[in-house]
Design a protein around this nucleic acid. Structure first.
Length: 468
RNA sequence: GCCCCCAUCGUCCAGCGGCCUAGGACGCCGGCCUUUCACGCCGGUAACACGGGUUCGAAUCCCGUUGGGGGUGCCA
């Protein structure tokens, strides 16, 4: 354990990279970085029937976005098939594996009579079946004894061989099952630590058995991470929305916030400071400190972490990161967007936005010819609020003579409010709704003077008209 | 069914035999600040699943129960 660790993240390209997978990747990466080790990416694509080419990029893209730089690979198992075939041949030769031509239906029929058993009954163990089409290779699990996994997170986990079936290691289409590829590659790539989700814990003794039969010597250390669960306390599933890492990117989460939050699921820094730079997390992270219980993926907390990161961004950086939401994704026509106006307001927006996707809603009224007026806001400020018509009339009366600055507007609205017995908080509401369309938003006077005076007048008049 | 794992506030983490009348964070509820909403600050709510042991002493160790999850495929 004195030499630097070599870890691997080994996803199958069968879908978009899931947050749970991303968390596994992160923990592997953290372990490697903490110990100055190597982070290897290996694509587990032995099952050609399930693999979809478009998902290869769906792995490396999000990893890169998250900031998990890869030291080695990607290795593709589909390009290493000969290695696995050789290993299987060796197992066949040594008698640790055998051919089987049973169909699932036949197996199930036999199993139905031996109540309580599942999997495979060992029917072909000594039938000397010859290789051929529709023939698989199975591993001969020892009848007695057990395999013990010394898991860094879970301690010793024991599996009785009697509970393990003679599992398939080569499919009838001649492709190896991931268990073989796992053992072969982990040995070949000199992997020292296998860090992955707890859902793989049950497959570990099988890989271990293969490892031993292949004579690989000292196996890697295992660390099975607690699963990430959703509202229903069940493993985060692809069925639900927003479990792909790319969805979070699209929803306006910063990669560093995402990585920071993910590091907090199943682990916590010893000093309780949760939001901090990745360099510090690397320094503090250890697998030994990862705990065992499943972790709920809490969007509320993610939002909080994200908002904290957004606020901490240098304003120029913030503006740059908002770019996609201000252009391609923006709700306004491209030619009406004025970068200078946005830049002026950016610091205030940083204070309020929880995600980058929230950003356009703060400024859309500045770039839209006719911003929509929110019904609830209208009701609250114009109908239920006191003196809305008086406020608008009062402001309108002096609008053309006021200096077009935030301070002057502040004074104007304050005075008109006072004349109507309203404090500023109440007084500004009708003006805000008339001009910006909502009761909530940026500091009003600072932002309203960014609109031409004539446009503000037009909106006030329109609101006043609607009020009658 | 069988195998494996897990069990501290609603949620995420602290706690690894005495410092715990259980700590922090998110959320939630009050209050302050205030140009709305946020931010910030102050305060509050709220947990050791249960039952047996072991021990002078248990959230911490052991056993059981209950509950949850995962796996039981020619997916990974």
């Amino acid at each position: 354990m004195s030499s630097p660790p070599r870890v691997r993240f080994a996803p199958a390209p069968t879908g978009f990279l899931h947050v749970g997978s991303a968390r596994s990747a992160l923990f592997n990466w953290l372990h490697a970085r903490h110990h100055g080790g190597t982070f290897v990416l290996r694509i587990e694509d032995t099952n050609t029937e399930l693999v979809q080419p478009e998902f290869y990029d769906a792995i490396t893209g999000p990893l890169q976005w998250l900031g998990l730089d890869i030291d080695e690979g990607p290795y593709y198992q589909s390009q290493r098939l000969q290695l696995y075939a050789d290993a299987i041949a060796r197992l066949l030769a040594s008698g640790d594996a055998y051919f089987c031509d049973c169909t699932r239906v036949a197996i199930d029929a036999r199993l139905a009579e031996l109540a309580g058993r599942a999997g495979y009954d060992g029917f072909c163990r000594d039938r000397q079946v010859a290789d051929g089409p529709d023939v698989v290779v199975r591993f001969r699990v020892p009848d007695s004894g057990s395999t013990v996994i010394d898991d860094i997170i879970r301690g010793h986990v024991s599996f009785a061989h009697a509970e393990l079936e003679d599992f398939v290691i080569r499919r009838s289409n001649d492709t190896p099952v991931f268990l073989v590829a796992n053992a072969v590659d982990d040995a070949d790539m000199a992997i020292t630590h296998v860090i992955r989700g707890e859902d793989l814990l049950n497959t570990t003794p099988k890989v271990q058995l293969l490892w031993t039969a292949l004579g690989y010597g000292e196996p890697p250390r295992y660390a099975h991470l607690p699963l990430l669960v959703g509202d229903d306390r069940k493993k985060l599933s692809k069925r639900k929305q927003a479990v792909a890492l790319a969805d979070f990117q699209r929803a306006g989460y910063l990669p560093e916030a995402m990585a920071n939050y993910l590091s907090l699921l199943g682990w916590g820094p010893p000093d309780d400071i949760e939001i901090r730079p990745m360099t510090e997390i690397i320094e503090l992270f250890t697998l030994e400190a990862v705990h065992k219980a499943p972790a709920f993926f809490d969007m509320k907390k993610l939002d909080h972490v994200n908002a904290t990161y957004i606020r901490a961004l240098p304003v120029d950086d913030f503006i740059e990161r908002c770019e996609p939401w201000l252009t391609n994704e923006a709700p306004w026509p491209a030619d009406s967007y004025v970068p200078e106006i946005f830049a002026e307001l950016a610091p205030a927006i940083q204070e309020k936005a929880h995600t980058l996707a929230d950003v356009p809603a703060f400024v859309d009224w500045l770039f839209l010819a006719d911003p929509p007026i929110d019904d609830d806001s209208w009701r609250k400020a114009m109908v239920e609020g006191r003196a809305a018509p008086e406020m608008i009339d009062g402001v309108l009366a002096r609008l053309d003579h006021v200096e077009w600055t935030a301070d002057a507007m502040y004074a104007l609205v304050s005075e008109v409010g006072e004349a109507n017995g309203l404090k500023l908080g109440k007084a500004q509401a009708p003006i805000r709704v008339a001009v910006a369309g909502r009761t909530v938003g940026l500091p009003l006077f600072e932002s309203i003077v960014l609109l031409p005076r004539g446009e503000v007048r037009r909106r006030l008049v329109a609101a006043r008209t609607r009020l009658d």
